[in-house]
Design a protein around this nucleic acid. Structure first.
Lengths: 270, 270
DNA sequence: GAAGTTATGGAATATATATTCCATTTGTAA
DNA sequence: TTACAAATGGAATATATATTCCATAACTTC
């Protein structure tokens, strides 16, 4: 059997596996069959583990990897690890390179940002915990008034939620802090708050959320880290991670989450 | 700090991470913050990789694992590898599972909005004309001041551009119309304007853009139709189409375009 | 049945990775 | 300012894992 180049993606791998499976000696067949049904384990297992589960010796497994075109198991595993963790190429470095050259080609820059936007969206369904999302919706549905706070980069999300709730006649107050107005007296028993803050966490947002929580207001947090300061006040936490692009992060995933919240709450309040 | 038993599940790990994050020396703080945002990488990375990404030495990372109660990294990783094995194998299968959940379930709704966000991003590189984008960047680079207007659903984009330009020390004025202030006298010869408006086109935005154009201010329009009213004033037009999801459209594609503009302009002005 | 080829198991070897140890630096208290 | 404690970086060491090699078994062809 002639040796082909190594597959470079999970999909390539699948096609190759199908192709080589046509005719195989006994042990290699076991490897093929096992892998066909257990791709989920490739990224997180050792050769020894996979071989054992396939019922073959590790060396047979290695031979199968080579038959597929890889130099060894590590090369195969690398493809799956990248797919699983959505481990991105270093975007900051690529952006720097694009900046340097693409002063003359903003369309290439646009394509890059489209890619990072997609990547951020891709991760959203795994960072957002279904139970936490349901809790958040339940809190917001039950509240007579919804308070919104999100400043600096998070402001567009807070604003958009206010806009969306407004269109659905859901009582929602954007704590926009115009003129440094003190809006805390508008917090009434039974109300809920959505607080949105991303590292390095705007102090005013944290203070407003902490104050609300201290008054028994239920807080739903949209934030980017498990140990975010918003976690400390007992907020129902929805995790969003936008792909880091050096100086900036866009908000593509945050918007998908915001509109989900608005829609789910709006549907239940009408 | 007393040593607690090792967490035995991902959820235990999360609680422990939050608990130990209260007070940490510098390098251990880096580890905590990195892990708080990157749990997806634990199962498929080495100590060396994680330490590097966290910006610490491997030994600091090991110390952090021990602070969390584990004997070392391997014990921590084991929890995540076991958790992973019990989950969906890959992104598209995960998405199918989400879709199979009852309609109206917020998590399923989230998956749908992720899909529409992706679709909106997908179309962006074809709706945005490369020459028009280049023209827009050229206009903005040359302007002593950039004026921004976008109201209602477009406001988050206008705001975000103001935020981004502000961070890069590019003079940009958000026409936010607070208190119905009249800001038109701030338009100076040679300035440029970015006007953002989507159907049904907010009248105030159109008027502000038309006024600017009538004074010889070059206008860059972000809009959703070739025959948008903003086209009529001779604006350099960048087309974005957000996929329609009933009552609402998110802004995922608009954000990718906004950050592209900000970045390209910022690179050329520094 | 014999010869040649292919497949296989497992030990030996190479490499990657986790962990420990220790000298130095930094921070804190008196 | 000094002494002590805590934090840190990085080299050395230990362990786990991937890979190669080779003797033997199994299969195929004549």
């Amino acid at each position: 059997m002639t040796q082909d180049a190594a597959p470079t993606s999970v999909e390539d791998f699948r096609q190759r596996l199908i192709a080589v499976s046509e005719t195989l000696p006994k042990r290699l067949r076991q490897c093929a069959d096992y892998l066909a049904m257990n791709t989920d384990k490739i990224a997180v297992s050792t050769v020894a583990e996979l071989a054992q589960e396939a019922g073959v010796q590790p060396s047979a497994f290695m031979r199968f990897c080579q038959l597929l075109g890889f130099s060894g198991f590590s090369e195969l595993q690398k493809i799956f690890r990248q797919d699983y963790s959505q481990r991105w190429p270093n975007y900051s470095t690529r952006l720097d390179a694009l900046r340097a050259e693409a002063a003359g080609n903003p369309h290439a820059l646009l394509a890059e940002f489209v890619e990072t936007g997609r990547a951020s969206l891709d991760s959203l369904t795994s960072t957002v915990d279904a139970a936490a999302l349901q809790t958040a919706v339940d809190i917001l549905v039950a509240a007579p008034r919804i308070h919104l706070i999100g400043l600096k980069r998070a402001f567009p999300i807070a604003y958009y939620l206010a806009y969306a709730f407004g269109k659905m006649s859901v009582p929602a107050l954007l704590h926009d802090r115009i003129g440094d107005l003190d809006q805390q007296h508008l917090l009434h028993p039974g109300d809920a708050m959505i607080a949105i803050s991303y590292a390095p966490y705007t102090q005013n947002t944290l203070e407003a959320a902490a104050l609300a929580a201290s008054r028994g207001i239920k807080v739903v947090a949209i934030t980017d880290a498990l140990n975010s300061p918003l976690q400390r006040i007992g907020a129902a936490t929805l995790l969003v991670r936008e792909v880091d692009m050096g100086d900036f992060r866009a908000l593509s995933a945050s918007f998908a989450l915001a509109i989900t919240l608005a829609t789910a709450v709006g549907a239940r309040r009408t």
